[in-house]
């Protein structure tokens, strides 16, 4: 494989800019997804009537439609009903909409994995339901959720590659654009792969460290 280094150095700043955008949208989208996911998981865990049905519908829609369709909907359909959005906030919203349901499922199964006796023994010590949730149930559930959570973060970061469809100048957009302009396909794709790895590898490594940490934090009977 012959890589033209001149082309690479010429493209590099464009990719750097695009990577920053991808990371930025990924970061905000994922943080929002965590908030949405935790909220949905708690509603479902506590079986709160009506709300849990609404959330079940949201989760089905979110998990069973591609991110691309969700983005198109947010980008093209919402302005028609008077909700204006720019491409960046669309990206964040789309990622949060998709990620929320994936995070909800991970957190919910974490919560449900905690044996009921944990709650009962906290109650019989005189801890309120809220303090029991905060000090006893959530810390355990979150630790159990770590592997699924890390997988979701990586999945969502990879999904950002469809942002180019709504003209966000992310990595994918930059690569496609450059290929269209100069036909330096190999260099453009090479940088695309390298930049995605630069973003994803640290997440993956941090994730494994986190998983090891919670495994050591004293779980099991």
């Amino acid at each position: 494989m012959d890589l033209n280094t001149e082309v690479l150095t010429q493209y590099l700043p464009l990719y750097q800019k695009a990577a920053v955008l991808t990371v930025k949208i990924g970061y905000f989208g994922i943080v929002l997804a965590i908030v949405i996911g935790l909220f949905c998981a708690l509603i479902q865990y506590h079986k709160i009537p009506v709300l849990r049905r609404i959330i079940a519908v949201y989760i089905e829609i979110s998990r069973n439609t591609p991110l691309l369709i969700q983005l198109f909907f947010i980008y093209y359909a919402l302005p028609k009903i008077g909700i204006s959005t720019n491409a960046e906030s669309c990206g964040v919203a789309g990622l949060a909409f998709l990620g929320g349901s994936y995070m909800a499922e991970v957190f919910r199964s974490g919560l449900e994995a905690i044996p009921p006796i944990q709650k009962e023994s906290a109650y019989s010590l005189g801890l309120s339901p809220l303090k029991t949730m905060f000090h006893v149930i959530l810390p355990q559930a979150v630790s159990i959720s770590v592997p699924g959570f890390v997988a979701n973060v990586i999945f969502l970061l990879k999904e950002t590659s469809v942002f180019s469809a709504i003209s966000l100048m992310d990595l994918m957009f930059t690569a496609k654009d450059l290929i269209g302009l100069h036909y330096n396909t190999i260099e453009a794709l090479f940088l695309l792969v390298v930049f995605y790895l630069i973003i994803l590898l640290p997440v993956s490594v941090l994730g494994s460290l986190l998983e090891r940490r919670v495994r050591h934090a004293g779980f099991g009977s």
Partner: peptide, 25 residues
Amino acid sequence: MVFQSYDLFPHLTVLKNITLAPMKA
């Protein structure tokens, strides 16, 4: 109340298990 088993909080040390309710509740 003390149960048959598995009622200690696995994510807390013995000391923290004991002091949680007195301190927080």
